[in-house]
């Protein structure tokens, strides 16, 4: 078993306390949420924070609340809670789709949505989910709170706009009528990170045309969502030909790299194939919710 370098540890008692602790202990202090990204990296000594500020006691960050136009999710909400949430299942089927294939059930008992988004791993699934649901992120710092678009959260692989002395506290998902969403991932084995994955969220107009659509890809080097594919769909009546064209555009716009999970052409092919699949399902669900 590998072992991390030494560090100091403090438990935050409130969000304000966490921020104060981060301020006090300076640039080498890190937030410890579920710990399922941070601790593995520390054990491999790829990360060496000097202080860990444990926010697991912050029950105030562990919630899912539903309002007519928005669902708010606390940053400390665990993967398992999201997977089992009836609110999510009803409004955002993509969440359960993704959660079912994130890591494994035991990891999901600990890992949090806040940790996932702040880790900003290129193969991380919830970023894609939040991207296509056009989420907003609530960030708290000593100076107060700011609300940003999810697209402004991720700055690149392992980099976010949450400052060292700030806390991501909440994710907000807009609720939209006649919407449907879906996620699909190809993995080498259950529990593995994605070879590639795609997520889509669709809003249909009253006449059945696609009013709004977002397509995201995981692990294939697409920053943000697949704009050209989305543009090709907007205002159109969903059809297999349309999905095929959109899949092709999404595949063209991503930028995968070869690794043990597969070569570039395969990953590009998956971007295409999975985009078509999730569009198909998202449109069908949106139509059902009519």
């Amino acid at each position: 078993m590998q072992i991390s370098a030494p560090f100091d540890y403090a438990r935050a008692e409130s969000v304000d306390d966490a921020i104060a602790l981060l301020e006090r202990h300076g640039p080498e202090a890190r937030v410890l949420a579920g710990g399922h990204s941070l601790l593995p990296m520390m054990k491999l000594r790829l990360a060496r924070p000097e202080w860990l500020i444990d926010i697991n006691d912050l029950a105030e960050l562990d919630f899912i609340t539903e309002a007519p136009d928005m669902v708010r999710i606390g940053a400390m909400t665990r993967h398992t809670t999201l997977l089992e949430s009836p609110v999510m299942a009803r409004l955002f089927p993509i969440v359960a789709d993704a959660e079912r294939v994130i890591a494994d059930p035991v990891v999901r008992n600990r890992g949090t949505i806040g940790g996932s988004l702040c880790q900003a791993d290129p193969a991380e699934d919830l970023s894609t989910v939040c991207d296509v649901l056009r989420a907003k992120a609530v960030i708290r710092g000593a100076a107060g709170k700011r609300v940003i678009e999810i697209s402004e959260l991720r700055r690149g692989p392992y980099e976010t706009s949450v400052a060292q002395n700030e806390l991501l506290t909440e994710i907000r998902l807009p609720v939209r009528a006649r919407s449907g969403s879906a996620y699909e991932k190809v993995e080498r084995r259950v529990g593995d990170w994605a070879v590639a994955a795609a997520g889509a969220s669709v809003v249909l107009a009253a006449d059945g045309r696609i009013e709004d659509v977002a397509i995201g890809l995981t692990a294939v080097g697409l920053e943000g969502t697949a704009h050209r594919a989305e543009d090709s769909l907007r205002g159109q009546v969903p059809s297999e030909e349309l999905f095929t064209a959109a899949g092709r555009l999404a595949a063209e716009d991503c930028n995968p790299v070869e690794d043990q999970r597969g070569p570039v052409d395969y990953k590009r092919h998956l971007a295409d194939e999975l985009t078509r699949r999730v569009l198909r399902r998202a449109c069908a669900l949106a139509a059902q919710r009519g």
């Binding site: 540890y9 438990r11 710990g35 399922h36 601790l39 860990l52 398992t80 059930p105 008992n109 600990r110």
Partner: peptide, 13 residues
């Protein structure tokens, strides 16, 4: 009551 991987939890946590 929930299964966790004890190698990925600090004793302190």
């Amino acid at each position: 009551g929930q299964p966790v991987k004890a190698c990925t939890v600090l004793a302190a946590m």
